[in-house]
Write a protein that binds this DNA or RNA. Structure first.
Lengths: 337, 337
DNA sequence: GTGAAAGCGCTAACAC
DNA sequence: GTGTTAGCGCTTTCAC
C-alpha cells in the first residue's frame, strides 16, 4: 500500500522546507508565487491529502461536527440531516452522527463520553424526556460550541433554530375555524417539551382570538406515535361534547386520528376535520390526504449548520435564535364537502 | 475552560511516567496492580478523555467509520443507519456520514476527497448510476477496508451484506400465483443495478417454475420513485393483454401503482393484485394495505458494521457475503375477495 | 515493572 | 520569503 503522501515527502522532492509546503498548501501569502505553484501542482499530482489527525492535534480543530438527535427514521429528522450534510460538505466538514433513541440516559452517556477533541462543534436536538441540560452547558463551557435545532434546551445561551411552532399552530387552528369547524380538539405531545407547549399555545390563542371555547377534555397529552394518535382520538369520540375537528401535534398522530375515525365510520372532513404538522410525504399518499403545516426541515438543517460554522470560526459570535416559518398545505382532511 | 486533562497531567500528579499511565489506561498487563488502580481512579476522577487525534496519529487508527449511501430520507436507509449506529456505539466507534444524493459524480468526489487518515473503514451502498467502481478498489488497496451493503459493487473482492433479493422476489411472485393471479407484470428499477436484476430474475424464475408466460410488455424498467410507479402502471393498463397482478420492485413504486389503479377505478386485490418490496411503514397505513416482502433493514446495518469491525481488527479477514432473508407480509392488496 | 526518548504529520513561533 | 525547531497528546521501542 505504501504510506500516504505527507508534506515531508513534498518538501524533500522540491527541496524546500516543510513549513513552506504547509504555508503554500494553506494559502498563507508569504510564499513565493513560483514555489507555491510547484508545490500545489506536485501535491495534486501525488494526490496529497492532509492528515486531519495531525492538523487536529497541532491546531486543535478537526473539521468534524457532531449531530445528536433522537431518531433518524422519520421524514423530519432525516431531511434535517440531509440539509446539515449539504452545508457541511460544502465547507469541508464531516458529520458524526449520534442517535439517542429519544432516551435521556443514552443522550447523557453520549455527551459524557464524547471526545471533544475530535469535534469542532455540536448540533443537537434534545430527547423528549431530558430533564436537565447541564451536560450541554458543560460542553459549551469547555469551549465547544453547540447549536440547538427543533427540540431546544431553552435555558442555555447559544444559537437555536426552530420552526414557527406557535405561529404554525395558530395558523392551523385558524384554518380550521375559517373552514367552519368550531369544536376543535388538540391531541398534543408529552407535557414539558418546548415545542409541544408552543403548539398548544398557538392552538389556545387562535381559539381565544375567535371567541371559541377550549374545553379541557378536548386537549390530550400523550406520545408522538401513530398509536397515540389513535387512542387519543378514541378518547375524543367518547367526550360528552364531541369535537368536530382535531389539530394533531404532528402528522403521525394525525394519521392515527384518520385511522381511528375511519374505524368508527366517521367521514373525515365532512364530519370531523383533521390537521397535522410536519408535511410528511405520507400526507399526500393517504386517503383522505392530510392538511398540515409544512415544516422547513431541510432549511432547519442548513441554517443550523451555517450558524454552527459561524460559532466555530469566530468565538464570541453572538448567539442567534432563528425561527423558520411553516406553510399551510390544504388537503382533503379539512374539506367539508 | 482550562485545557483538557491529558496523561501528562495524571503522570505528574501521581509521580509516574506518561508511558506508565498510557499502559495502565489501555490495560497492558505489565503494570503494577497498585499503581494501575491509582491511575485509573485518578483518571476517572479527573474525567480524563483520550484525545483521538493523538491516538490516531500515533497508532494510525481513529475509531471512525465512514458510511456512504445515496439517501437517508427513506425508511430503508435510515433504519440501516440506525442499525449501524447501534453496533458502532457499542464498540466505541463513531459514524461519519456521507450522502451521495444517488449521484455517481458526488460519490466519486466524496471518495476521492476522503481523508483516509481519519477513517478506519468504510460502509458503502453505491449510487445507482455508478458505472465504475475503481475508486473503491483504490481505497481498499490503500489499506482501508470496505464493506458493501444493499447496493453492492459486485466485482470488488470484499465483504457484502444484502437482502435476499432473488429469493424475496421469487417468493413474492409465488405468493401472487398461489393467490390465483396468472398474468403478472413487473415494474422494475433501472437496468444495470445489481439488486434490480436479482429481483427481476426471481420474478422470471417463479413464473417459469409455474409455467406462466413472461410477456415483454409486462416488464417495465424505470426509476424507483412513486411517480415512476404511477406512470409504469398507466402503461401496463394500456397493454394489449392487461395483467392481473403487479410485482413492484419496491414499496414506493407499489404505492404509485395503487394510486394509478385507484385513479382508473380498478379494484385493487380483486381485479389487480399488487405486491411491493421493503415493508415501508406506509404499507400498513395506506388503503388498501400493501402486501410486501419485508427487508431486514436494521439487521443489514448491524451485520455490515459487525463485519467491517472484523475487517478492521484482523487484516486479512476473509471476505464474507451474507444474504439476509426477507419476509412475506400478506396484506389487502393481494386479497382477491 | 517503569522511564526516557523518538516519532506519528502538521502548525507556528522564531530566526535569518 | 524561507528554514529551523518545538510541540500538539499519545504510543512504542529500548534501556534499565
Amino acid at each position: 500500500m505504501g504510506h500516504a503522501v505527507t508534506i515531508k515527502d513534498i518538501a524533500k522532492i522540491l527541496n524546500v522546507s516543510v513549513s513552506t509546503v504547509s504555508r503554500a498548501l494553506r494559502d498563507t501569502y508569504d510564499v513565493n508565487q513560483e514555489t507555491k505553484k510547484r508545490i500545489l501542482s506536485l501535491a495534486a499530482e501525488l494526490n496529497y491529502k492532509p492528515n486531519f489527525n495531525a492538523t487536529g492535534l497541532a491546531q486543535g480543530s478537526t473539521h468534524n461536527i457532531g449531530v445528536v438527535l433522537p431518531f433518524i427514521t422519520n421524514y423530519y429528522f432525516s431531511t434535517v440531516i440531509t440539509g446539515i450534510q449539504e452545508v457541511a460538505y460544502d465547507n469541508n466538514y464531516n458529520i458524526i452522527l449520534f442517535i439517542t433513541n429519544d432516551s435521556s440516559e443514552r443522550e447523557l452517556s453520549i455527551i459524557q463520553n464524547l471526545s471533544l477533541s475530535r469535534l469542532d462543534g455540536l448540533l443537537v436536538s434534545v430527547s423528549s424526556n431530558s430533564d436537565s441540560c447541564n451536560h450541554f452547558q458543560e460542553i459549551i463551557d469547555e469551549g465547544t460550541p453547540i447549536v440547538f435545532f427543533d427540540r431546544i434546551a431553552s435555558n442555555i445561551d447559544t444559537s437555536k433554530v426552530m420552526q414557527g411552532d406557535y405561529k404554525g399552530a395558530f395558523e392551523a387552528v385558524e384554518h380550521l375555524i375559517e373552514s367552519g369547524y368550531t369544536k376543535i380538539a388538540h391531541i398534543a405531545g408529552p407535557k414539558g417539551l418546548d415545542f409541544t407547549e408552543k403548539r398548544l399555545n398557538g392552538y389556545l390563542d387562535a381559539l381565544k382570538k375567535h371567541g371559541l371555547a377550549a374545553r379541557e377534555e378536548w386537549i390530550i397529552f400523550s406520545g408522538f406515535s401513530q398509536e397515540y394518535g389513535e387512542t387519543d382520538t378514541y378518547q375524543l369520540l367518547q367526550c360528552e361534547q364531541r369535537p368536530d375537528a382535531i389539530f394533531a401535534v404532528n402528522d403521525r398522530k394525525a394519521i392515527g386520528a384518520i385511522v381511528a375515525l375511519k374505524n368508527n365510520g366517521v367521514i373525515i372532513g365532512k364530519e370531523i376535520g383533521v390537521i397535522g404538522f410536519t408535511d410528511d410525504p405520507i400526507c399526500t399518499i393517504i386517503s383522505p390526504s392530510i392538511t398540515t403545516i409544512a415544516e422547513p426541515a431541510f432549511e432547519i438543517g442548513t441554517t443550523s449548520c451555517d450558524l454552527l460554522l459561524k460559532h466555530i470560526n469566530k468565538k464570541n459570535f453572538n448567539p442567534q435564535e432563528i425561527i423558520l416559518p411553516g406553510k399551510l398545505m390544504v388537503r382533503d382532511s379539512t374539506r367539508r364537502n
